[in-house]
């Protein structure tokens, strides 16, 4: 099974990269751009019997290592 984890800084934590990218996009003429967030995606193969079990495992990985929930939120896709 393929797992994808998307990690972003939480709302309320200043995303300095997002801010810089937003300013750069504005500078290039895309004035309508707003609320840019820069995050990361972590992808991996997972040998798991069913989707629910896989999701639970990936959740646990996020809590333990892949995200720091003090500053980051995450979203898991398994399929």
């Amino acid at each position: 099974m393929r797992a994808k984890v998307h990690v972003f800084l939480k709302e309320g934590v200043l995303d300095v990269q997002g801010k810089a990218v937003e300013q750069a996009l504005h500078g290039l003429g895309w004035a309508d751009v707003g609320h840019v967030r820069v995050g990361k995606t972590i992808e991996f193969e997972l040998a798991a019997g069913d989707k629910a079990k896989a999701e639970a495992q990936v959740q646990a990985m996020c809590e333990k290592l892949l995200a720091n929930t003090v500053i980051e939120s995450y979203r898991v896709e398994v399929g």
Binding site: L9, V13, L14, V16, Q17, A20, N68, V70, I71
Partner: peptide, 8 residues
Amino acid sequence: ALIRNEGL
């Protein structure tokens, strides 16, 4: 937590 410096 320690996050990216404001000046990047």
